[in-house]
Amino acid sequence: MTDDTDQTRTDGSGPNIVPPDDETPTWHERKERSEGLSRVTYEYFERGRLEDQRLRQDSDYIERDVLGFPTWPHETIRNLSIASFFVGIIIALSATLPPHFGDEADPSVTPEIIVPDWYLYPAFGLLQLDPINPELALLGGEKLMSDELYGIAATTVVIGVLFIYPFVNKGSARRPIEEPFWAAVGMGGLMFGFTISVLSIDQIVADRMPGLTAPLIFDLTLLLPLVTAFITYAVLKAMQEGYMYELNRRYYRLRPPR
């Protein structure tokens, strides 16, 4: 009988059991986290959740049963067929065009033509911009930067532009026609990527194509991108008006431009 008074019993009574009353926090109250960062976090997400709920209630948008393209079978089969086609092309090319293999490395013999793989042509071409490396009269016609450093600086600029690009070109426009300027920048950049690649192998190109000389290639490297950008801008600007009518009618009603 003494056991009964000391120990917790199966019916929930006992010396150490405090019955729940108004003072005891409920589960919901405990979840609310009454202090510190956890409280701020809770309030932030709770506000977001309520906002979502409110938006959903106020919205007159009719939710469709199917919001997207079905994954099976449509998307899956399409992707599988594209994938097998692509891997098939790799294998077919590998079987028909095995890679070139040159002579053994020899530090004492400099090959006539040093070329990297094609995807390094742009970087290689940026190293050959030394004719426009400014010579400062202050330094007695000496260059401020070595030609290699100048090439590295040019590469850094290109990569830097790529990095900050989405933070510079903001807004919700998506089609090139909506922003002729940025489309022109893109086409100019694309053309510069091509011409700078040609510049990196200008010796080979000049040998193969008698009309092109190395200085001409250099001039074209800087001119063609500008011309391309200008033409792109002019064409898109001329097309824009007629095109925007359709865009306004179909699409801006759903997504007003910022």
Binding site: G102, A105, I114
Partner: peptide, 25 residues
């Protein structure tokens, strides 16, 4: 680029040379 250097033929080595010069600059 790193893969291009591995066969250790003439082009590999001289591509490496260019990379080295760029790093030094």
């Amino acid at each position: 680029y790193t893969g291009y250097l591995l066969p250790w033929n003439q082009l590999s080595m001289w591509a490496g040379q260019i990379g080295l010069e760029m790093a030094l600059a």
